[in-house]
Design a protein around this nucleic acid. Structure first.
Lengths: 245, 245
DNA sequence: TTGCACTGGTGTAAAATACACACTAATTTC
DNA sequence: GAAATTAGTGTGTATTTTACACCAGTGCAA
């Protein structure tokens, strides 16, 4: 028993914004609440942090229980602790986002029980607690992270075409990119491995398949190489400035 | 009494990395611990979050108790919750950084009692708990924030010269900037108000004084204007790449 | 088999930005 | 009035971003 035990303690949780990419849409995995408060509403998956658990571990656990996936990209974003954010008492929550390849994802028993479902990010309008705000923070963070590090690949299957990759970036950045400039930039980073394979079963000229070369990325990163994807930003700003006039 | 009360609860705190700028050095306000654990060691100022307090409020309170300052720039950075980060029990801490003008800062009774002292960031080598890691995260965040938003002004007195501003940026970014390019870029942002005054009491040609035009900044920000300060980055990367070879 | 629908794939020129670089101007001090 | 010190200023080159349009390969249907 130390002086410590006299201080106020609170419940604390992690909430995980699980992003996936499918059918050209950026999606987020939500859960239909089966209990009060906010019964029947959609919410972010989250849970209490156990006493013997680091924060990252807890976030990974929440993710794995739902999707069965481990070793996926996970990033801590922000902590939400408004006094009244939970009607039953003080709960502080650490928000994470993670990136999963939807195809890898096998519905876990837990996720069926918890009625998990993918929702296009752009169509989510309302969530339990302050989860909508949390979602927005995480989406914002994903947007800025993706410009600096090639984390987009985490959302695609191991083999993908350049067009798929571009659509992914467009979904995340909520903008349109120029095909030629995008390809120039991405290929110029020298992070893609040409697999000498092409798509099959498509009713048009098949595209080449690539995979992300993680080893090369790590080597480049150590050398201080810069992966900034600037494209579309200046344009965006200019557009907004015009609109403002 | 709800189901809630059965869950594990933990103590949680905020820690505040208070940056200041003085004598050309970026500094951080540290406290000499007067109690176990880590008695006698330097630590970041921090305290428990009260039951009726939001996180930002707690961070502001910690800051005000030490410096007497309110309404300064404050940014949440990251939450640290490793199981054993505190020897007396589980403590989760939310790290913030804040930017204060050292000249405004009046030593508060509380800060004298707590033996607060400014330390050049570059000379801090070891801190209590995981505070060194926290400091590094916050410094890193300051570095990247300062490239995107003109928050540097928060560290300078209301009136300053361009050279002072440049030294500040150099201290934060840990690099040297070219005088002419820096001035071109900063003045081009059109955020500085020329005060038609000059320095006094200096033994050389006196410099013009400027102040930051916050209103204009807010207006520009609303228009989606971009304040990126890119200078020095490409150079840095290239240098590091050379070294790596 | 031919043509249509569809998506894949490619280069270049103009504009904006980043970078490197060196001298004159104004003031104090001795 | 000479020396010392910092303020202030402009231009050319390299790099990056941007805008933009056509031919190529495949499946499918007529």
């Amino acid at each position: 028993m130390t002086e410590f035990d006299n201080f106020f303690k609170s419940a604390f949780t992690v909430d995980n914004v699980i992003f996936g990419f499918d059918e050209g849409d950026l999606k987020v995995l939500l859960i239909k609440r089966g209990e009060a408060p906010y019964m029947g509403q959609w919410a972010l998956p989250g849970y209490f942090v156990y006493p013997n658990e680091d924060l990252d571990t807890a976030a990974n656990r929440v993710l794995e229980e739902l999707t069965g996936l481990r070793h996926v990209y996970l990033e801590q974003v922000k902590t939400f602790g408004a006094v009244n954010r939970h009607p039953f008492g003080r709960v502080i929550t650490v928000a994470y986002f993670s990136l999963v390849k939807i195809n890898d994802y096998k519905l876990q028993p837990a996720s069926i029980a918890r009625k998990a479902q993918w929702h296009p990010v752009s169509e989510v309008k309302e969530l339990a607690f302050d989860h909508f705000e949390i979602l927005q923070s995480c989406f914002q963070r994903l947007k800025s992270s993706v410009r600096w590090r090639p984390i987009g690949f985490e959302l695609l299957p191991p083999h993908f075409t350049l067009t798929e990759l571009q659509h992914l970036y467009e979904a995340i950045l909520e903008t349109e990119l120029d095909k030629r400039n995008f390809r120039k930039k991405i290929l110029g980073m020298d992070l893609l491995l040409d697999l000498d394979q092409t798509q099959e079963g498509v009713a048009h000229r098949p595209a080449k398949l690539y995979r992300f070369d993680r080893e090369k990325y790590l080597r480049f990163q150590a050398e201080g190489f810069n992966f900034e994807l600037k494209e579309g930003q200046r344009k965006e700003v200019r557009k907004r400035r015009m609109e403002a006039v």
